[in-house]
Every structure is written in structure tokens, then in C-alpha cells.
Design a binder for these strands. Structure first.
Lengths: 151, 151
DNA sequence: TCCTTATTGAAAATGTTTTTCATTTTCATT
DNA sequence: AATGAAAATGAAAAACATTTTCAATAAGGA
């Protein structure tokens, strides 16, 4: 599953006319598998394990290429908007742990009625929406209860 | 209405032990009235009209103070997360024009069932959610139709 | 294998935000 | 109104993140 997804990403890169290189392979492999949002330096550190010569500039460039292809997207959190994750597929929304950044997509929201109402009331033509749930993942719940009950 | 809201913000500043100064008054007046999300330089430019000696550093510092008081908050857009707007009151969500940044709050979403379901399925304890509608405001709709039908 | 060209990494440049610090301003106390 | 302690300010410097430049390298079709 993971291997074929990696291959799918690399094929898309190729179809677009880009070359498949060592640095790109390393970054794609890692982003396909990542279950946490990662910032460019995180990606850099992980990619260097696979490809030690990796430069940070290449991380920025590759994330941009993958983002243009719709394979990764930027993750927004209240305090940090510099993280990347594989892109949502279809109509997925993000559930993200505010403690460790662990992320998962979900679907099944139904905002149609709301959007129609707001559209009427505001006069905006609504192009898209953004829904994201913040919480604590199972492994972060105990930590937070111990340290700062409430927050 | 606007005058009293400005006063309310200044009183909150005072209660917190901060001083009311010329630069802060200028920034508060402008943020209370703003119906577009503004980045620090936008705020700087507008504030200098009222208070010409204003420094950009003071804009950063004042936005932080107002943000700590919950009076303004950072606005996130796909490409730009450096804008500020008066904070949502109660359970409001943002509707924002992707062309000009015109912003309005709305309420009346009902995500209770969805959140409960995702909470069960994922094991996350959900602390909050983030809903935002993107669209074109009435004055930007004609522009976009002329220039780039679709986008 | 060769050759063209995209890609790379290092360094420099750019742009944004934060820190430092001497000066100025606020405002409670005279 | 004058004073003085402390907070706030603006300019400059520093720190930080991201982008650009450019010579060297590597990919992949011929």
C-alpha cells in the first residue's frame, strides 16, 4: 500500500515532466508515510536519514512541487502554519492533535444547508470551506491530564 | 457603537494593567472598525495616518497584546496566515473573501453530532473546531468573472 | 556512452518577526 | 501642576524563515 502510493506520487511527478531524483524519492517516501504534520526542517531531518546530502533548499522546492501536484498540503494550526501533510482526498477534513501534531482525515460532514444559508444572507458566492477538529490523540491525553488539567 | 467598542477595548487594556497610549489608541480604533483582515504592514500603514510616528515594532507588539486579551485573532488563508481581525465573539465562524480579504462572522453551525462521531471513531478528545467559508464577496464577484472564469 | 537540461546544494539575498536599548510617555503620587 | 517610577516606544541590530542565484552534478533520452 505504502510502496504503491509512493510509486503513484513518483509517476505523477514524471508525467508532469519532472525528473525522479534521490532527494525527491526520499521526501516522497517520508511524506506518504507521515502521520504527523511536518515542517520543512522536520522533513529535512527525516529525509537526511535516507539521503544524507539533502539540502534544506531542496526540501522547500520539493514540497512546493508536491503541493502544486496536490499531493501534499499545508496544515494550519492556531500558532503554526508551516507544516505539511499528504493532501486530503476528495472531501476529507483534518483532525489534528494539538499536542503532538498527529493527524488523521475524516469525512462525512454535511454543511450544505449551512453554506446555502450563509450564501443567501451574505451575498458571497461560496467557493469552499475549511473544517478542522483540534483535540488530543489517545497517547497525548494522559500527558495533558497530568500536567495541566484543563488548558 | 464603534466608539463604545473602542472604549471597551481600551478599558480591557487598562484593567490588565497596560497603559493607554497614542499608538495603541490608533491601532485599536482601526482594528475595531476593520472589515478586512489586515497584516501587520497594513495595520502599520493605516495607523500612521492617525499617528505618524508609529513604528512597525509597536504594531507587532500591540497586535500581540490585543491577541492575548482575545480581542483580535489571526486569520488563516490558504496562502497567507499573517492577517489579523477582531476576534470571533462566542461561537462565530469566519466567512472571508478570497479575493479582497473582506471578512464577516456567522454563527449557527451545528457540528455536535459530527464531533461526537469522530471523537468515538478516532479516540481523540476533541477540544475545538475550526470552520471557515471562503468565497467571493459581492464586489469581487464581477471582477473574477471578467478576468479568470473559474480559477 | 554521450549530451542536454533539470536538479541540486551552498552561499547570498530577501523579507518578516523579535530583541535590545536609550529615550519618551503615561499616570499615580505629590 | 510637578515629580518620578515604570511601561511603552522607535530605531537599529539580531534572529529566523524562505527565496534566489549560480556553478556543479545527475537524470534519462538519444
Amino acid at each position: 500500500m505504502t510502496v504503491t502510493e509512493t510509486e503513484r506520487w513518483l509517476e505523477l511527478l514524471e508525467q508532469k515532466g519532472s525528473r525522479i531524483t534521490g532527494p525527491r524519492k526520499a521526501i516522497v517516501e517520508l511524506m506518504v508515510d507521515a502521520d504527523h504534520a511536518l515542517n520543512p526542517v522536520d522533513v529535512f531531518d527525516r529525509a537526511r536519514v535516507k539521503y544524507p546530502k539533502m539540502g534544506l533548499v531542496t526540501v522547500y522546492r520539493t514540497l512546493e512541487v508536491l503541493s502544486d501536484l496536490g499531493l501534499v498540503e499545508r496544515v494550519h494550526q492556531a500558532d503554526d502554519c508551516h507544516m505539511y501533510l499528504r493532501a486530503a482526498q476528495g472531501h476529507e477534513h483534518l483532525l489534528i492533535c494539538s499536542c503532538c501534531g498527529k493527524a488523521a482525515y475524516f469525512s462525512g460532514d454535511d454543511l450544505g444547508m449551512l453554506i446555502q444559508r450563509i450564501s443567501m444572507e451574505s451575498g458571497f458566492s461560496i467557493q469552499g470551506h475549511w473544517l478542522q477538529l483540534q483535540g488530543l490523540c489517545q497517547s497525548c491525553q494522559p500527558k495533558k491530564i497530568q500536567t495541566q488539567q484543563g488548558e
